[in-house]
Amino acid sequence: MPVEITARKKPFRQRLRRDMRENWVVYLLLLPVIIWYIIFCYLPMFGIVMAFENFKFAKGLFGSAWVGFKNFQKFFSSYYFWRLLRNTLTLSIKDLIIAFPAPIIFALMLNELRSRKFKKSIQTISYLPYFISMVVVCGMVKTFTESTGIFSQISQALGGPKELISNPGSFHGIMITSGIWQGLGYGSVVYISALTAVDHELYDSAKLDGANRWQQTLHVTIPGIMPTIIIMLIMRVGHLMSVNYQKIILLYSPATYETADTISTFVYRKGLLDGDYAYAAAVDLFNSVINTILLVTVNWISRRKSETSLF
């Protein structure tokens, strides 16, 4: 086999010479891009080595003492380990169950509308929150959930906590609700475009078989967008250990650490605020290893069960 392939193509050296003669300018254009990726993406990957060291900035990556898995052991035996793992997983799983289906349902609802004008307006309005910055969104969340805010007022009227933003029991709810508010329209775009691609003849034949709107949705529309849903689901589960830490950092306070502190926010505090770099890098590495394992596993299951997969 390999012989046949090389026989059809010209020898590598000849192709290389031709490529360099014709395309050296193109490689020159690509060079700064490659350098950027080496500096800002690949160097940090090698920097992960520091998770296995007693890293001192003065000694550098190569001069610091090697300590093996000590930083990881310190984390696993830490008082915070279970709390961080529990918060990361519960917040993420709640988000997966509640926030993941929201844009799908929203897209299906829009799909049922007859007036194109109304559909277009609702769509346009729903994208708006996506363009509001995280800082401003969190500012709004705070004004609505501090004691004088509308949501705390409702909570008080129902006999609940006086102030939601400082109540550990409300933190996940605040995160998920504001996440849906900001991401609903944006998240629905991919499903809306998948919906337009569903074959219209399928609807016609379903109608001939006497299917009503509900049955058409169930047996034509949803199967039609299922590959898209599965791809999005794989990506979502592959990020199960990644929470929106930027938002948590803006919204949490020591009063809500009990439910709000997650692995990523702990990494930020330990590493960048307390300067315990190697320990934080180890904790972060643990997080991304779990994420990678999840992604590969879910992708594998999906490929076997439904023939849809990311890679």
């Binding site: 920097g47 992960i48 990556l61 960048l272």
Partner: peptide
Amino acid sequence: GGIIPTYM
């Protein structure tokens, strides 16, 4: 690499 090595 994560935020810590990138910071470094």
